[in-house]
């Protein structure tokens, strides 16, 4: 990759923001599996592989599947966040592969959050 100038930095920011904005990027959903040390130890890898398997099976290419670090609530790991276009993100807790499959079908494909596994909706506070 070429060395960046300050201008490039701004361009990356803009491009990346639109890539990741579901609307502008043409995506329908984004799923983040939280994989810090705690999450992995609690079984986040199983959740991730169940998810990727379902996405592949469904043959969908407009879903972003990604990972991130610790989500902070270690007691309820593994955690994952599902964001459907035009809806607030929903965070699920105490997951396993099976629950993830169910969430995939109900929430990601069907658009109905799976309330029994959900912890919270919305974003965390930053200011």
């Amino acid at each position: 990759m070429a060395r960046l100038t300050i201008d490039d930095l701004r361009k990356i920011k803009e491009k990346q923001s639109s890539d990741f904005s579901l609307r502008k990027g043409g995506y329908s959903a984004k799923v983040t599996v939280h994989m810090g040390t705690c999450g992995i130890a609690a079984g986040a890898r199983d959740v991730m592989s169940a998810l990727t398997e379902e996405v592949t099976k469904a043959g969908m290419d407009n879903i972003i599947v990604t990972t991130s670090g610790c989500a902070g609530l270690c007691a309820r790991e593994p955690l994952a966040t599902v964001e459907i276009i035009n809806h607030p993100p929903v965070r699920y807790c105490d997951l396993n592969g099976e629950k993830m499959r169910e969430i995939f079908k109900e929430h990601i494909l069907g658009g109905n959050p799976v309330e029994k596994y959900a912890l919270v909706r919305g974003c965390e506070t930053t200011y």
């Binding site: 912890l119 919270v120 909706r121 919305g122 974003c123 965390e124 506070t125 200011y127």
Partner: peptide, 15 residues
């Protein structure tokens, strides 16, 4: 599903 502001774990935090 409760919102972040309804759950004290999230409500009192500022990141």
């Amino acid at each position: 599903i409760p919102a972040m502001k309804d759950i004290p774990f999230f409500r009192y935090q500022v990141l």
